[in-house]
Nucleic acid binder design. Structure first.
Length: 799
RNA sequence: GCGGGUAUGGUGGAAUAGGCAGACACAAGAGACUUAAAAUCUCUCGGGGGCGACCCCGUGCCGGUUCAAGUCCGGCUACCCGCACCA
């Protein structure tokens, strides 16, 4: 058969769609497989080859599972709220709804042209009112359960445009639009109390099947640390300064304290501070610093000593100075630290610069040069002297602190509460009403969805407000509680909202009573296998695990964890080995490949290009190689015979075994390599039986389904090969009669011999010793040891 | 700085569990077919040496364990990706 991809791909895509063969059924008696890929943001640029690699992996797994008789749910949708559509709307004066619909349509056509076996009857769109109704519903449930609060946050703000900017739009501390300096502005924003779920999110990791590096990344992101809170008295004032430390056992080495520039202590005791002007100036300087300067520029420690406030070390009564410095953050711990310069490098640098005492309390380092953070014997530390084990000394100190009521064991997380807001139009409106009498009042559930109002102008509002704030008819409303005049919240939700629960909606996408039917969730959840990019392993996955765990706790969903298994594909790099980017001009458009080589070639190539989890550069020549492979597969119809071809039996069974397990292990490259090797063997053999060819095509079908369907049909087979039964192998038929084993003398390979598979060692040694290439190396030597690894190797150790 | 990952021919990459390094492709070279080119088919293809059967070296670097190391252990180097003054 000649390989005419243009003709056959359109033909089979239409047949699949007409027959709806990839529709998941809600037949709860069947074994199920829920395969999930990260739904795309439907950008105007269309699909990227990265999407192809991400989707084809689970596509292959899903197709195989379907052939194995599973009821497969392999859905797709669109994460369509977000800035690009909004910016484009501003530029072209078109409604983002229109743009989004166009992009979704375009994207869908592109996805269909690759032949994915998605269930198109379950498409979700996060910007659809029927979808975001439930996003708002979950938000209100969280509000009800005290997980939503408002607090101040520093936001990127452009004073010239009077607009809040995202990190992306304020890179390098300059406004992307007018290029003036971006400042940090304090603003009241919405937060979700994700830190309350930190321990549950950590515990949940023990029950799921994620690769160890992904688990570790999530653990580090949550960043649990144990230590102690300690109260330091302030001399002459009835006030405690509370700090957090992971090393309470170093308390005797404390020589000063540092508080964050924003710490409330300053304002509270402003009248006691002698150098208030200097401190205020330092504070202002810190506020001006952008995120970029704070984190990217390695710099000297700066700070100012607070005159008039002195702290007292609670363990020895020593009076110590208090500084403010920007190396201490308000957002972690209590915003204040006890400084132990002998054993913390940052404190050491600060003490050196400001000429503060350095007291050694742990032996083992040279504290005149740098801080010593290792283990060692405790000294200069009263009752802790002589301790050599960190764990013991910390435990003892915590006991002392608790007995005296000046400290307690504590836990801290690096993870911060989730700032949950955007001052933009194209997002889910936050369904809260501000009533002057009742405070924050939720929009009643029956009024959901709280729809985005129609507006003409999507430009952000002034002074950091959302565009919605300009709409009087939207803002002014009555309080659902007291009926008085009230104002609506005008912030919208961030991008991450819809993607935090979208996988639940696929289960029951048209339900009007609930986010999904309970019975259906009990059948389909959890997601059996979730594939996506490494970049979403922390934020998106942690956010969605948090939402899901919350929904579990309030009885809405049936599993504590949403994803039973997670995998991640590696990046597709440009042909030059660099990350693909428009500015570098190394972007490959997958649709060009579909046009020039066909969807089957594209699919096969992205699966063949290398280790699925690793980054790999694009190679046009290698694409051609995959096309050549498929052409040779098409040519097999000319080698097909009615006769049996037993000479291919072992090779075929080996290949079934290899392809079956490789797909499960996501070793797609070696699965394809083994099919190529078998193809070479078939050509060498000159013929293949009809039966064996049918089996071969079934193995290839998940990768190149259009070609396999066409050949299946031309062979006169019934139905779709996509629904045919996945081949089984016979273990006994995967072993050869004889096997070539290596013969080593003193560990060096000297020859190979053929022996019966699994033969005993006497036979192996005898055969090996008789080998003419081995003989010269044994002659005149004393045989010290003989090693035999069945079916692998013989090694003679001689002297 | 902290955490994670990677390193194998000219290239992408193979190598259950410590057991014949380089599967499968790509590129390159030679040949066949062709008026010619493309396509296709056949052969060569890690480096060095030898007329030759063959021999020596070789998985980022240094050392170790072992009959045997790409694989295990100790110590480096380079690059990539997260997080980043986390007390």
């Amino acid at each position: 058969m000649k390989y005419q991809y243009k003709k056959i791909e359109k033909k089979w895509q239409k047949k699949w769609e007409d027959a709806q063969i990839f529709k998941a059924s809600d037949d709860f008696t069947k074994k199920k497989f829920y395969g999930l890929v990260e739904f795309p943001y439907p950008s105007g640029a269309g699909m990227h080859v990265g999407h192809i690699k991400a989707y084809t992996g689970l596509e292959v797994v899903s197709r195989k599972r379907r052939m194995q008789g599973y009821n497969v749910l392999f859905p797709i949708g669109f994460d369509a709220f977000g800035l690009p559509a909004e910016n484009y709307a501003i530029k072209t004066k078109t409604h983002p709804r229109v743009i989004t619909d166009q992009n979704i349509h375009h994207f869908s056509e592109q996805l269909k042209s690759v032949g994915y076996s998605f269930d198109w009857s379950r498409v979700v769109d996060t910007t659809d009112e029927d979808f975001y109704r439930w996003t708002q519903w979950i938000f209100l449930k969280m509000f009800e359960h005290g997980l939503v609060f408002r607090d101040k946050a520093l936001v990127n703000y452009c004073p010239s445009c009077k607009v809040v900017l995202s990190n992306e739009d304020s890179q390098g501390g300059k406004c992307d639009i007018c290029h003036s300096d971006v400042i940090q502005k304090s603003k009241d924003v919405w937060y979700l109390r994700i830190t309350q779920y930190a321990d549950k999110l950590l515990e949940g990791l023990e029950t799921v099947d994620y690769p160890p590096n992904i688990k570790l990344q999530q653990q580090n992101w949550i960043g649990r640390s144990t230590g102690a809170f300690v109260d330091f008295a302030i001399d002459g004032i009835d006030e405690k300064l509370e700090i957090y430390t992971t090393r309470p056992d170093t308390l005797f080495g404390v020589t000063f304290m540092v508080i964050a520039p924003e710490h409330p202590l300053i304002d509270k005791y402003a009248d006691k501070i002698g150098n208030l002007d200097e401190i205020k100036a330092y504070r202002a300087e810190c506020a001006k610093k952008s995120e970029f300067e704070r984190t990217q520029l390695v710099k000297d420690k700066t700070g100012v000593k607070i005159d008039g406030l002195t702290a007292v070390n609670p363990v020895n009564g020593v009076k110590i100075p208090i500084f403010i410095a920007d190396y201490v953050m308000m957002g972690y711990g209590t915003g204040a630290i006890m400084a132990v310069p002998a054993h913390d490098q940052r404190d050491f640098e600060f003490a050196t610069k400001f000429g503060i005492d350095i007291i050694e309390v742990i032996k083992g380092g040279d504290i005149t040069k740098e801080a010593y953070t290792g283990d060692g014997e405790m000294i200069n530390s009263g009752y802790l002297n002589g301790y050599t084990n960190k764990k013991d000394s910390i435990a003892r100190m915590i006991r002392e602190l608790e007995a005296r009521g000046i400290g307690r064991a504590g836990v801290q997380y690096k993870m911060k509460d989730w700032a949950f807001n955007r001052q933009r139009y194209w997002g889910e409106p936050i369904p809260i009403i501000h009533c002057p009498k009742c405070g924050m009042v939720p929009v009643p559930y029956e009024e959901l969805p709280l729809k985005l109002p129609e507006v003409e102008n999507f430009e952000p509002g002034t002074d950091g407000e959302s565009p919605l704030a300009k709409l009087d008819y939207f803002v002014h409303c009555t309080c659902p509680k007291c009926g008085g005049a009230a104002k609506r919240e005008t912030d919208t939700m961030p991008q991450w909202a819809g993607s935090s629960w979208y996988f639940l909606r696929y289960i029951d996408p048209h339900n009007t009573e609930a986010l999904a039917d309970r019975k259906k969730m009990e059948y389909w959840m959890p997601v059996d296998w979730y594939n996506g990019g490494m970049e979403h392993v922390t934020r998106h996955m942690i956010y969605s695990r948090f939402w899901h765990r919350f929904l579990y706790d309030i009885g809405v969903v049936n599993t504590p964890e949403p994803y039973a298994k997670r995998s991640a594909q590696g990046l597709v790099l440009g042909p030059d080995g660099d990350k693909m980017s428009k500015s570098k001009g190394n972007v490959v458009d997958p649709l060009d490949i579909v046009d020039d080589y066909g969807a089957d070639t594209l699919r096969t190539y992205v699966m063949f290009m290398g280790d699925y989890g690793a980054a790999a550069p694009w190679n046009d020549n290698s694409v051609k190689g995959c096309k050549r492979f498929l052409e040779r597969v098409a040519g097999l119809t000319d080698l097909m015979t009615k006769d049996a071809t037993p000479e291919l039996e072992t090779k075929l069974h080996k290949t079934i075994k290899k392809v079956s397990s490789d797909i499960e292990d996501m070793k797609f490259n070696t699965a394809i390599a083994s099919m190529m090797a078998l193809l070479n063997d078939i050509y060498d053999n000159g013929k293949i039986s009809e039966e064996y060819l049918a089996t071969y095509l079934k193995l290839l079908c998940p990768f190149a389904p259009h070609l396999c369907e066409e050949m299946w049909e031309s062979m006169g087979r019934e139905g779709f090969i996509s629904l045919a039964e996945w081949p089984e192998y016979d273990e006994a038929k995967t072993v050869d009669q004889t096997v070539e084993i290596g013969v080593q003398v003193n560990g060096k390979l000297r020859g190979t011999v053929a022996v019966p598979t699994g033969c005993d060692k006497e036979t192996a040694f005898e055969t090996a010793k008789a080998n003419e290439k081995v003989v010269p190396f044994l002659e005149g030597k004393t045989l010290v040891k003989e090693i035999y690894v069945p079916n692998k190797i013989v090694n003679f150790v001689v002297r």
